[in-house]
C-alpha cells in the first residue's frame, strides 16, 4: 500500500474507496455515541420518548386547542406528533453534524481519517432516538384509532433517508463554518428554531397558498412531513411532485455541503 502526500489540489474529489476502507471506524464512532448516550439505558430511552411526547402535549394545548391551528381533520396530538417525529430527528442530526468537528477536535488534531465519517455518524446516532419515538407513534395511532397504512410504513425509511440527506448536507456546511467561526454554535439553535416554523410541523402544508406551495417544498422537511402524514395516517392525498421537489433539493443540499466541506476539510487541523 502506497500513500502519496501532496499539497491539496483545488479539484474536489471524494475518495469512496477510502471511505469504504474506513467503514469500521464509522461503525465505532456511531457505537461510541450510542453507548455514551444510552449509558443508563432506561434514562436514555425515557428521554428519547419524553422529549417528543412532552412537546406534543404543549403544542396540542397551545397551538391545537387555544390557537386552533387547523390539522387537516386529523386529531391535533397525532398530527403534530407526526411532524415532530421527523423534525426532531432532523434537528438532532443537524445539531450533532454541525458540532461534530469541534467536539472531536482532540482526535482530528492527532490522527488522520476521513473527517466526513464524523458527519455521517452524527446523522446515524439520532436514528436510534427516532426508533424509540416511532414506537410511541404507533402506540398513539392505535389510541387515536388509526390503522397504520402498510405503504406508509414502508415509506418511513425513504422519508428518513431524505431527512438524513438534508441534515448531512446542511450539517457538512455548518460543520466547516463552525470550525472556522466558533460563534456559529450559538446561532445554530436560533436558526433551527426558525427552520421549524417555516416547516409544516405545527400546521398543515394545506394552509400554504397554492402559489407558494412548490416554494415550501424546496424545504426538504416539508416533503418529508407532509408525505408522512398523508401516507402513514392515510389521510389526504400525497403530493408526489412536492415530495420529488423536496428529495431533489435534499440532494442538492448534500452536494453543496460536500463540496464546501471537501474544500475546507484538509485545513481543519490547522484552525481547530
Amino acid at each position: 500500500m502506497t500513500t502519496v502526500i501532496k499539497p491539496p489540489k483545488s479539484l474536489v474529489e471524494i475518495n469512496l474507496q477510502e471511505l469504504w476502507q474506513y467503514r469500521e471506524l464509522l461503525y465505532i464512532f456511531t457505537w461510541r455515541d450510542i453507548k455514551v448516550r444510552y449509558k443508563q439505558t432506561w434514562l436514555g430511552i425515557a428521554w428519547a420518548i419524553f422529549q417528543p411526547l412532552m412537546t406534543m402535549v404543549v403544542f396540542t394545548v397551545f397551538f391545537g386547542n387555544l390557537a386552533k391551528i387547523p390539522s387537516d381533520g386529523i386529531p391535533y396530538p397525532i398530527f403534530v406528533y407526526s411532524g415532530l417525529l421527523f423534525w426532531n430527528y432532523f434537528s438532532n442530526s443537524l445539531t450533532a453534524a454541525s458540532n461534530c468537528m469541534v467536539e472531536n477536535e482532540n482526535i482530528i488534531k492527532k490522527i488522520y481519517f476521513p473527517r466526513i465519517l464524523l458527519s455521517i455518524g452524527a446523522t446515524v446516532t439520532p436514528a436510534v432516538d427516532f426508533g424509540f419515538a416511532l414506537v410511541i407513534y404507533f402506540v398513539l395511532m392505535v389510541i387515536f384509532g388509526f390503522t397504520p397504512n402498510i405503504w406508509g410504513i414502508l415509506m418511513i425509511p425513504v422519508l428518513l433517508l431524505v431527512a438524513m440527506v438534508s441534515a448531512s448536507g446542511l450539517g457538512l456546511f455548518l460543520a466547516s463554518v463552525n470550525v472556522k467561526y466558533r460563534d456559529v454554535r450559538y446561532i445554530l439553535p436560533f436558526f433551527i428554531q426558525i427552520l421549524m416554523f417555516v416547516t409544516p410541523v405545527i400546521y398543515p402544508v394545506s394552509i400554504v397558498p397554492a402559489a407558494f406551495k412548490m416554494l415550501a417544498y424546496i424545504n426538504p422537511m416539508t416533503g418529508v412531513i407532509s408525505t408522512a402524514r398523508a401516507m402513514i395516517l392515510g389521510v389526504g392525498k400525497v403530493d408526489g411532485v412536492g415530495l420529488l421537489v423536496s428529495a431533489f433539493s435534499s440532494v442538492l443540499l448534500l452536494i453543496f455541503g460536500l463540496i464546501y466541506f471537501r474544500k475546507t476539510e484538509r485545513f481543519f487541523a490547522d484552525i481547530l
Partner: peptide
Amino acid sequence: KILSRITPPTTGKITLDGR
C-alpha cells in the same frame, strides 16, 4: 503532522510505501 496526513504540506511530496 504532515507525515500523518493531519495537515497538508504547502509544497513537495511524500511517498510512504506501506501501512
